Simulated assay, not measured.
Amino acid sequence: MRPPATPTREMLRLPHGPTEVEWRRSARARRVTLRIDPAAGAVVVTLPLRAGRGQGMALLQAHSRWVADRLGALAPHVPFADGAMVLLLGEPHPIRHCPDGLGGVWLEAGEIRVAGDPAFLARRVADWFRAEARRRITPRALDHAARIGRSVRRIAIKDQRSRWASCAPDGTLAFSWRLVMAPEWVLDYVVAHEVAHLREMNHSARFWALVASLTPHAAAAKSWLARNGARLLRYG
């Protein structure tokens, strides 16, 4: 018999304060695990199929200080709203609602300007960021691929939370739209990294040499993402 179902998400009072908890079950999990979801500002408890809620609660109680510290260290959530300050290629840009403007969303005078009904502002800004990510990533990926004699089958722009990008065996590249918030040289590294997988589907010495031939920013970009990546997940 399987254990009783647990709520997908709930607010729990742990020893170090109220905490939003998301429960997940996984057929691949071999033990109960905890991780922080920066985008949701919650702790994720993953349970094997045969594990009960009590096991997850025991792990939460035992590591409540770690959970509280990690959640407390997250950057504030920044919704897409009029006046909010967001990043584009590493530089802060305010969102400015221009109800009588034309063109949907556009850049002007260092601002991301949004026309139309304020009820649709957040969705329009999110769509604009996706389009901007595709506009900047696609030519860069095609150029890097041409330099190593490979072709890209398709480029997908997603809201990936567990990785910034991926390369499928069929040559499809997928990127998080949030990369367009990072500095351009960080974006370039991530694109070069995935394009290099078109030739080397591994992380061997040959792979890293190929990455280095495409971009000089690998070490600095990895360091930047380690320090700032969680912050990008707090927008929108």
Rank of each mutant, 00 (worst) to 15 (best):
W224P: 08
F80H: 03
F207T: 11
V21I: 13
M85Q: 15
V195T: 01
A5T: 05
R227V: 05
Y189W: 11
P139I: 02
N202Q: 08
R35N: 08
W177E: 09
A122K: 09
R154S: 05
R28G: 03
G171D: 07
P79K: 09
D37V: 08
L210D: 00
G54M: 06
G90L: 00
A141L: 06
R140K: 14
A115W: 10
R134W: 04
L142H: 01
Q61R: 11
Y235S: 06
P38I: 04
A122G: 08
G90C: 01
L232E: 13
A29W: 06
A131V: 01
W185P: 09
A156R: 15
E22H: 06
W128S: 00
V114C: 02
V195H: 01
A141I: 00
R150N: 03
V43G: 00
A51I: 12
G110V: 01
V180H: 09
G90T: 01
E200A: 14
R53M: 12
V44S: 06
A75G: 07
R154K: 13
L12I: 09
I36Y: 10
F120H: 13
R53Q: 14
A212L: 03
G116T: 05
A133S: 05
R154M: 09
G17D: 06
L14M: 12
R140S: 03
M11C: 14
E111H: 14
S64T: 13
P216N: 00
A156C: 09
P118Y: 04
R150D: 09
V45K: 02
A205T: 14
H217I: 04
A58E: 13
D143F: 00
A230P: 03
T46E: 15
H63G: 05
R28Q: 13
T19C: 14
L107K: 14
P38G: 06
